[in-house]
Computed example of a mutant assay.
Amino acid sequence: MEQRKHKKLNQIKPTTNILFNILFIILALMCVIPVIFVFIISITSENSLANYGYQFIPAELSLSAYVFLWEAKEQIFTAVGVSILVTVVGTVLGLALTTSMGYVLSRPTYKLKNFFTWVVFIPMIFNGGLISSYVVNVKLLHLRDTIWALILPMAVSSFNIIICKTFFRTTIPDSVVESAKIDGATQLNIYSRIVLPISKPVIATIGLFLSFGYWNDWFLSSLYIDNPKMKSLQALLNQIIKAIDYLVKNPTAGALAQEYLNNMPKESARMAIAILIVVPIACSYPFFQRYFVTGLTIGAVKG
């Protein structure tokens, strides 16, 4: 009788279930429709955009925006390679540093835990600013015009470390760690063979944050990189957008520039650039999503 009562309380009413489904469908459409709309604009001709504005069903289709980007394919392919390298290396390095620091700070027996917790926490509230970080990265570390200038400044985040620390403290039982110590396991073995396999959800979450941050970043490239062959995809596309905006806002830029502006897709090129940036990272999301729920109870303590 008691079991039936609990089962009845845990059931979701059909009406509530329908309302939740409708809500989730609306939220999904709010995420998907803007991307579809941007793609439609990217394949709309400039004449149609000038005459009718943005439309879901364009009067005239055109691939001129993608042809425009294809003409700069050598630069774009080089920039894509730089972005992929930075994203992969930065995500792996960031995960290694963040999870290891979070695990160390989560152990109650670590003597310097309180000190380093404050060291990690304070930069979330106060930081030295852009000038100090620029001086450190350029004058002290000599990262200018190197690939590490795009990786190291974003590798570790205080917010991510605190997330890992909280996850390890609330999820990894102390009895599991103590049992491994009794069996003669070192801290490195405990971390690599016990903690990390249990921690797939937080690893996937932090990995998603890092990969999104690295892939979408253009500021570090514009700040530290002068070599055009080392520009990231986002920085290169940002330069293209700025060049288009400059020509649009300065009609006196010159006859040759105006002729080039008249023959190039302006609005559709902006949207094509957005699609070029969004699609690759969106395709990687499902590979992270599968680990968000699984792995939480692996290695749990038996009663």
Rank of each mutant, 00 (worst) to 15 (best):
I275P: 00
L97D: 03
I190Y: 05
T99I: 13
P108D: 04
N137C: 10
V278K: 00
T205L: 15
F56P: 11
S268Y: 09
T15A: 10
T99V: 06
N137G: 05
T252R: 10
T87H: 03
S106L: 09
L27A: 05
S232C: 04
W215E: 01
L141G: 01
F209A: 00
F292W: 08
E46V: 05
M30R: 03
A185H: 10
W148C: 01
V89W: 08
I203E: 07
Q75E: 14
K73A: 12
S192W: 15
W118I: 15
T146N: 08
Y134M: 04
S48V: 08
D226R: 08
I182S: 03
V35F: 09
F126D: 01
T294F: 06
A185E: 12
F159M: 04
L85H: 04
L105P: 03
N263Y: 12
Y285F: 14
F56D: 02
I76V: 13
K139N: 14
T87N: 00
S133V: 12
T170C: 07
M1D: 12
L61P: 02
G102F: 06
G295Y: 14
M1A: 07
A269F: 10
I36Q: 05
L95G: 00
Q239T: 13
P58L: 08
N216K: 14
F116K: 06
A282V: 12
S42G: 03
Y110N: 11
A79M: 04
I22M: 07
L23Q: 09
Q3A: 13
V202K: 00
N10V: 06
T117I: 11
I33M: 07
F209I: 07
P58E: 10
